[in-house]
Amino acid sequence: MQPFGNTITDTEVRNLFAAAHGWEARYRELIKLAKQLPALDDADKIEANAIHGCESQAWLVSEQNTNGLWQLHCDSDARIVKGLMAVVLAALNNKTAAHIQAFDMEAYFAELQLLSHLSPSRGNGLRAVVAAIKQSCQ
């Protein structure tokens, strides 16, 4: 499975969102990112990989490679959630546990102007994705 983080970085996401004027343009970018995020195999969409706290169904599979970098794979049955996962993975995938734990997600989301346009439950779901990643990479 090709790690998503090898194809797009948080810097590229920042540039995409900086060029997207208005929420509708950012929403379109999220949908495009969702389409780039590889789907998990059905065999990985099990309770043990479920991310709890999302309204939608969401899953996380993580593994540490021989270099100590975490390979993160997420999927969701909702396009917008999958796009939000892509934004998170761009920042955290293929990084060390120390980098993942130290990365300031709230500042990243603020810079991208995401949270102010999400419903409270969707914002909580996004934070649940981040929490699940940080927990799995301890």
Rank of each mutant, 00 (worst) to 15 (best):
A110P: 00
L60D: 09
K134F: 07
I133H: 02
Q2L: 10
L69C: 14
A98V: 07
D41H: 14
L40S: 10
S121V: 02
Q36I: 01
A86L: 01
A58V: 06
R26N: 03
H21I: 04
E47H: 15
G83N: 06
E12W: 09
T66P: 02
S121E: 07
S56K: 14
E111Q: 15
N49V: 03
K35N: 10
G123D: 15
L114H: 03
A19F: 03
H52T: 01
K95M: 05
R26H: 08
R122A: 12
V61T: 05
L72A: 08
E55D: 02
V13L: 04
A128H: 14
L33M: 01
Q113S: 13
Q57Y: 06
K35E: 12
G125I: 01
N15A: 15
R79P: 15
V129N: 00
A86V: 02
L16M: 15
M85H: 06
A132D: 05
L16G: 05
K35M: 10
L118F: 09
F17C: 08
P38Y: 04
K82D: 05
E106G: 11
S119G: 10
L69K: 14
A43L: 09
N93A: 11
L114G: 04
V13N: 09
G5K: 00
A90L: 05
T7Q: 13
Q64P: 10
L60I: 04
L89H: 11
Q71E: 13
E24W: 08
L37D: 03
Y108T: 02
D75K: 11
A97T: 12
L89P: 15
V129P: 00
A97K: 06
N124E: 12
I31R: 12
C137F: 08
S56Y: 13
I100W: 14
G83P: 06
S121C: 01
I31E: 05
L30C: 11
H117D: 06
W23T: 09
T96E: 13
D44M: 09
L112I: 04
Q101I: 07
V129S: 00
I80P: 12
C54M: 14
E106F: 03
Q2F: 07
R14Y: 14
N65E: 08
T66G: 04
V87A: 07
C54I: 03
G125S: 01
D44T: 01
Q71F: 11
K134A: 02
E24L: 10
G68C: 13
E55L: 13
H99K: 03
N94C: 13
L126S: 06
I51M: 00
P120T: 09
F109C: 11
K35F: 11
Q36P: 03
N94S: 08
F109Q: 12
A25C: 00
G5I: 00
D41Y: 14
V81Y: 07
R79C: 12
A97D: 10
D75T: 00
G125D: 03
E47G: 04
C137V: 14
Q138L: 04
E106T: 07
Q71W: 12
S116K: 07
D42A: 11
K45A: 01
R79Q: 15
D41R: 13
G22K: 09
N49E: 10
N124D: 14
N65C: 08
R28T: 01
A102D: 15
R26Q: 12
G22D: 12
S62M: 03
E63I: 02
V13P: 02
Q64A: 04
R26E: 08
K82W: 05
A25Y: 00
